[in-house]
Write a protein that binds this DNA or RNA. Structure first.
Lengths: 68, 68
DNA sequence: TATAAACTTATCGAATTACGATAAAAATTT
DNA sequence: AAATTTTTATCGTAATTCGATAAGTTTATA
């Protein structure tokens, strides 16, 4: 199972969904969907924008959990 | 820039594109596109299948390079 | 060197999905 | 209680994956 976890980095950067959505350039609604593992895919442009906004690596955000 | 790098893990597992495509469940052609950074997005189901087939983590395959 | 195998690139169409815009509901914070 | 933040939902459009297929290119091998 692929798990999206934005919470940790958002907390670390003290960034709200609103602020992140502005930096990333997608709506709060869609970012929320992604954040809550409701998305089924991601554009690399979006992934890049998130990594940039949160100043983090891909693995800080996306994890593969073999058990699930 | 988001960079896909399947080569290292494929070499480690001694796995050809043909074999990987069978395990992942997508055509060689489309896997080749992904492998050569021609894809613009990825389904989490595909990412999961690749991680499973190569027995590796997301970061072994996808990297965010801030410089580029 | 010739042949085979592996890989890349291209095209078409169908299905899926992201994503915007928007609104309303729910949860959280103040 | 009120304000703020987040979640959920719907609709429509644009973008993208992916299969199927074929042809070209590169690499390995006999």
């Amino acid at each position: 199972m692929i798990i999206i976890n934005l919470d940790v980095m958002m907390a670390k950067r003290k960034m709200s969904l609103n602020e992140l959505s502005e930096k990333v350039g997608i709506t709060i609604a869609n970012l929320s969907i992604l954040k809550n593992n409701k998305a089924k895919a991601i554009k690399f442009s979006t992934l890049e924008a998130i990594c940039k906004a949160l100043d983090c690596r891909v693995e800080d955000i996306i994890e593969y959990s073999p058990e699930k």
